[in-house]
Design a protein around this nucleic acid. Structure first.
Lengths: 235, 235
DNA sequence: TCTGTTGAGATTGCATCCAATCTCGCCTAC
DNA sequence: GTAGGCGAGATTGGATGCAATCTCAACAGA
């Protein structure tokens, strides 16, 4: 199946830049986040290696990285699976986010300016207007990441990113279920956040993000059926 | 230097248990935490491989894991160094801990019992009694980890552990400097924490840990000289 | 019909080998 | 005397090959 690698082989120098493992990790991460590998899906080294036109060595290193990020679960001498979460585990991640994202916002807020506030408003409006789930998810993520974009942190920013990544498949399933009323509340909270940032009221902004995440967590708790997935294998 | 691996070669089956990479990662992590590799020290793949009686492949996978944990910094086509922190980065980690450890304690507290409280008291007393820095550090860590030991979390427990690991070298340098007065306050805070846990006052326990970490962070801020290390190489 | 076992195929783990890149001291040219 | 370039040694990155382990379906026995 070396035909599958044709798109990559076009750039013959790309395979020789000394970081194939990073490239594989980035590409795999994107594919998992975008749902091309659902939770519970098995990841075979050889298949992945073939697809990226690399050998299994950099693939294994990429899987190691993704395991540390929580996206992949490795079992010695058995294989790799896309991590699957229970409702309780997802709630743990949301509770962690409730504590961390206000802190990250505290790091970011002083560096945000009027142009950023306008971008945030625009993103919030587009979220309210769209009816496409994929676009809604992408805009929501872009909105929050923009609010954190001015934070130059060692690990906190990456950490929050990882927490979003591991819960992304469930956020997608959940977004399909929320009603117009909840959607309106999300929009209001986003608007409140931008307003607090514009006014320089950091305390209020922090509390708004925290409440925003907590509300989502509680709504998620009401949909345990999202986590009882029996279509794919174990783990 | 193959003589150095003699102790490991004694068990010839150990190299064939299908997780050499995990063994190398665990051992390297311990050595970094215990200060055998100081911040900024270069980690050469071949030297490490030789020392553990393995090839460079599992060593590279181990380094990937440690990089994701924040203990090691990798640069493509250049090498691996033990991560070095600036004062600002260390403060970021402490601020993160201030938010996360109260939450972890909330997960753990319901599972702790009288036997655990006694263990905690004993550890606190031994900390007050010792004058050895290494023992003080070990007891401090064991005290806090015991208070979190009943939490069965997906990632929060591991995450807190990683934050302790990356700051361990600086905690050691700092412990050498604190005076008797500060040491007494640490002891009082530990005692307060155990008391709150015994009384089932979770709110108070959470606030006590938070204050405890914040106080340490502020004291650390007063010793920027710990972070201006010019003895070893860059990065 | 159900349960325990066994063996071939599939898959992972690691060692060895080769290519690419970086480091750094020496040499040449101006 | 100084700046720029060159190249040998050291080090990392990746591909291939082999051994060990796991998977799973077919089969034998109760």
């Amino acid at each position: 199946m070396s035909r599958a690698t044709a798109a990559l082989e076009g750039d013959s120098t790309a395979t020789r830049d000394g970081n194939a493992s990073a490239r594989v990790a980035d590409a795999l991460r994107e594919q998992i986040i975008h749902g091309e590998y659902p939770p519970g899906a098995r990841l075979r080294q050889e298949e992945i290696a073939e697809r990226f036109g690399a050998s299994r060595v950099p693939v294994r290193e990429a899987l190691k990285s993704l395991e540390a990020e929580g996206l992949v679960t490795l079992v010695a001498n058995a294989g790799a699976w896309v991590s699957r979460l229970t409702l309780a585990e997802c709630e743990e991640i949301y509770q962690t986010r409730e504590r961390l994202e206000p802190l990250l916002l505290r790091y970011s807020a002083p560096g945000l300016g009027p142009a950023d506030y306008d971008t945030l408003d625009s993103l919030a409006e587009r979220m309210a207007a769209t009816e496409d789930v994929a676009e809604f998810l992408a805009l929501d993520r872009e909105f929050h990441m923009t609010s954190y974009s001015a934070a130059s942190t060692l690990m906190l920013g990456d950490l929050v990113n990882r927490l979003w990544n591991t819960t992304q498949p469930y956020r997608r399933a959940y977004t399909l279920l929320i009603d117009v009323h909840s959607q309106r509340i999300v929009h209001d909270e986003h608007h409140l956040l931008v307003t607090a940032l514009r006014e320089g009221d950091l305390e209020s902004a922090e509390r708004t993000v925290e409440s925003h995440i907590r509300r989502t967590r509680r709504l998620l708790s009401g949909h345990p059926e999202i986590f009882s997935d029996t279509t794919t294998d174990r783990r």
